[in-house]
Amino acid sequence: MDWDKLRIFHAVAEAGSFTHAGDRLSLSQSAVSRQISALEEVLRVPLFHRHARGLILTEQGEVLNRTVREVFSKLALTQAFLSESKERAAGKIKITTTTGFGLSWLSPRLHRFLEMHPDIEVTLLLEDADLDLGMREADVAIRLHPPTQPDLVQRHLANFPMPIYASPEYLERYGTPKTIKELADHQIIGFAGWHLPLPNVNWLLDLLRQEGLAHRGGRLAINNISAVATAIAAGTGIGSLPLYAASAHPNLVRILPEQNLPLVEAYFVYPEELRTSKRIAVFRDFLLTEISNLKNH
């Protein structure tokens, strides 16, 4: 099997059409189609079902695509390993984390990492759904839950509490609740979305329900932790935020400080093959330093 044809096949399988794959590969739609037909001829099996709305992999195509994805991911990993300097941290690093952590905490600090390591190029992918590190969708991840993907190196970074916050303006206008029962009369801002970025993201609303307190003010839910923090800071209502998200809004006022709080467990994870990587090590150390500074403030 020709490597170039396999590369084109993989692009088509991921894109779902000859046209989109051609755009990614800078090839014409007809050139991509010819390469796929030639590959099917060599293998003597159909790889795609062709229909008006696009392409669907056949059973044989699914098998081939799984193998090709694995091969190309291993090649990318090998290339990164071979090109890495033995003397200094250099090369590319693709980082993934949740949108909330990336927007409110990591992005504003990355300039320090880039200044410290001028030979490292960073790509930051913000996704509330976990990307597959084993398939090289990213090099490293900052997970805000215990990692479930097998065969990954994991380093516990921190446990972030999730205090309850309001803005000074909101409290001046509506008063400060002193108990959970009083809290039920206030506007509570919750989280909504298909992919929950944190296991306990709506713990405050859950607590009100468990206490039999129908929260009359729970009229706003947002599918982004950073946007929830911005809404609280703007005086829209009261809500619970992990410490890293609240740190972007230093004027927030913590309320009900005696309330027991859930913790957000943060982990730094990466494939076993990158255990000796210098650029991974310096980024891990950078995270630990920055998180230590946050906890000390």
Rank of each mutant, 00 (worst) to 15 (best):
F81H: 12
P242T: 09
A89W: 02
L103T: 12
P150I: 03
L125V: 08
Y170R: 02
L144M: 12
R7C: 06
E127T: 09
Y174A: 08
I232K: 00
I280W: 08
A246F: 05
F283E: 01
D285S: 13
F286C: 06
Q154N: 10
A231V: 02
F160T: 00
L243N: 01
K178H: 12
D23C: 07
G22C: 05
A52Q: 14
G54D: 00
L64V: 07
D130A: 13
T123Y: 10
L198M: 11
E59Q: 15
H10N: 13
A158F: 10
V153Q: 11
V12E: 04
D23S: 12
T96W: 03
S85E: 05
K92W: 06
T97D: 05
Q29H: 09
E41A: 15
L274R: 10
F160A: 04
I36K: 06
A192Q: 15
V228Q: 13
E40W: 11
F286K: 07
D23Y: 13
H117R: 10
T99M: 09
Y270R: 03
F48Q: 05
I291Y: 10
R44M: 08
A229F: 00
R44I: 02
G175P: 04
Q210R: 15
R254L: 01
A234E: 06
S292D: 09
F113R: 03
A248Y: 12
V71G: 04
L144S: 05
T58M: 13
S107L: 10
L144W: 02
F81S: 14
T19E: 13
I180N: 06
L157T: 00
D128K: 10
R136F: 09
L82S: 11
R53I: 03
E169K: 13
A221G: 01
M1I: 08
N293I: 01
P118D: 01
T148H: 13
A248D: 08
R136E: 09
G175F: 08
L6K: 15
N223S: 13
T98M: 03
N296W: 05
G16E: 02
S107P: 05
G22P: 05
E70M: 11
A233N: 12
T148L: 11
Q149D: 07
E70Q: 15
E62A: 14
E172L: 10
L198P: 12
V12M: 05
E272S: 12
I222H: 00
P168Y: 10
I232L: 00
E62T: 14
I232W: 00
D2W: 06
R173Q: 15
D139T: 09
E127N: 14
H186P: 02
E84G: 12
Y165V: 01
A21L: 03
